[in-house]
Nucleic acid binder design. Structure first.
Length: 176
DNA sequence: TTAAGGATCTCCT
DNA sequence: GGAGATCCTTAAA
């Protein structure tokens, strides 16, 4: 279990950075065209899985990429899956890393995110509301004007975000 | 059938 | 800070 601390919005079909750009509907993107609450999982660079939440009503191929999580329970299992060299902070502070730690792969494609084994839940009532910063999305330089949109959101306090403001190679800015 | 190119991570310097 | 890993998806022929 973990707390989501970083995410990015992808708004096809207009959004050039989205896999569903232009209404591209294939076996891979199919789940994004369906109802919300399901998992869109895909492979990047032939190596790493990425985990997205399908959002918005059926027909609108929108998704939210989960980029980082703060590990809460099952740390030993996560470390085991990630390799013994992974430090606590390195367990889930990146989209590929968290998929490895949570054992998310193609088998999770289309999974119902309201039911075990992979599901979202409300934060505890007593949990403080995090201060959320935003920046441009990561790794989508090819997307033209869309690359500049501040559609990456992350918890200002969390040490588990993938790129810290000020230390990033490109694209980071903080606003509100 | 083929070729090109990724919504990254790790290891090395 | 930079290169290599590595294979699926897509589009075009």
């Amino acid at each position: 279990m973990g707390r989501i601390v970083e995410a990015e919005a992808y708004r096809g079909p207009e959004d050039r950075a989205a896999h569903s750009f232009g209404g591209r509907r294939t076996a891979r993107t199919e789940v994004m065209f369906g109802p919300p609450g399901y998992a869109y999982v895909f492979l990047v660079y032939g190596l790493h899985w990425h985990f997205n939440l399908v959002t918005t009503a059926a027909g609108a191929p929108h998704a939210v990429l989960i980029r980082a999580v703060e590990p809460l329970e099952g740390l030993e299992l996560m470390a085991d899956r990630r390799g013994s060299s992974a430090s606590h902070r390195d367990l889930t502070n990146g989209p590929g890393k968290l998929c490895s730690a949570f054992a998310i792969d193609r088998a999770a494609y289309g999974a119902d995110l309201t039911r075990a084994p992979l599901f979202l839940s409300e934060p505890p009532r007593e949990a403080a509301r995090p201060r959320v910063l935003r920046s441009p999305r990561i790794g989508i330089d090819y997307a033209g004007d869309w690359a500049a949109r501040p559609w990456r959101f992350y918890d200002a306090q969390s040490r588990s975000v993938s790129r810290r403001p000020g230390s990033a190679a490109r694209g980071n800015c903080s606003a509100r």
